[in-house]
């Protein structure tokens, strides 16, 4: 599904080009749960932005469902983000004054789903994160864990092929963090592809595979040994 070959990204700091990714190569198959780890400045967020079509690479190739990012216009990228990708952010990015329903509806506003069909999709997505009783509560009134669950519902509502989660437990307490990760793990078990960026080993180990980045290069790409993990242990 995701094929990356020698992917590079440079940023300009003044006149000087600074490499953030210096040539990474890997693939992610449909239905995989992959964590991208690495220390601060390793390039994991940059890689996430490239994989989720929020940015374009300066070198290498990236194909998503056999279509190269280089062949797509900005409008096509926006359509792919809407149809095939879901996003969960560290800081939730909910609109505080809108209700849970209205927040979850946002991706549908930019989709080709007719207004009459939206309600069922929104209710199903909110039910899947266990917040059906909060459907008409303002997002700003929810707890951190509940906010992140709303964000997951928002990511799910368009039934995307892949969910990108950028430090989804970073702003949560340990218990809420585990709840969120369990929801993501459950989605994975139901066949959803999940790409998770985190710097927490316990969070990363919810995945099947961990890609470890350092200085813009892949240092390791390993399968997770599930028998060694206790899901009851606190995160962080």
């Amino acid at each position: 599904m995701i094929n990356v070959i020698d992917l590079q990204k440079e940023f300009l700091e003044g006149e000087t080009p600074t490499p953030a990714l210096r040539g990474v190569t890997f693939s992610i198959a449909k239905g995989e749960f992959v964590s991208i780890m690495g220390p601060s400045g390793s390039g994991k967020s940059t890689l996430m932005h490239l994989l989720s079509f929020l940015d374009r690479p300066t070198g290498g190739t990236y194909t998503f469902f056999d279509k190269s990012i280089d062949d797509m216009t900005d409008i096509e990228l926006a359509h792919v983000r809407n149809k095939d990708m879901g996003f969960v952010f560290q800081s939730f990015n909910l609109l505080a004054k809108l209700t849970v329903y209205d927040n979850v509806e946002i991706p549908l506003l930019y989709s080709d789903v007719a207004p009459a069909q939206r309600r069922a999709l929104i209710e199903e997505a909110v039910r899947s994160v266990g917040l059906e009783e909060k459907l008409y509560v303002e997002a700003g009134r929810l707890s951190g864990g509940q906010k992140q669950r709303v964000a997951i519902a928002r990511a799910l509502v368009t039934e995307p092929n892949v969910i990108f989660a950028d430090e989804p437990t970073g702003n949560l307490d340990s218990k809420s963090g585990i709840q969120v990760m369990e929801i993501l793990a459950d989605l994975h078990e139901k066949g959803r592809t999940i790409v998770l960026v985190t710097h927490e080993t316990r969070t990363a180990e919810f995945a099947d595979r961990i890609i470890y980045l350092e200085d813009g290069l892949i240092k390791s790409d390993t399968e997770v040994e599930k028998s060694n993990i206790s899901k009851e242990a606190p995160l962080k």
Partner: peptide, 16 residues
């Protein structure tokens, strides 16, 4: 700004 970023991330085009 953050709302704009979110809307763009979930599929809003510049025109939207």
């Amino acid at each position: 700004t953050k709302e704009i970023g979110l809307r763009m991330a979930v599929g809003a085009t510049n025109r939207d």
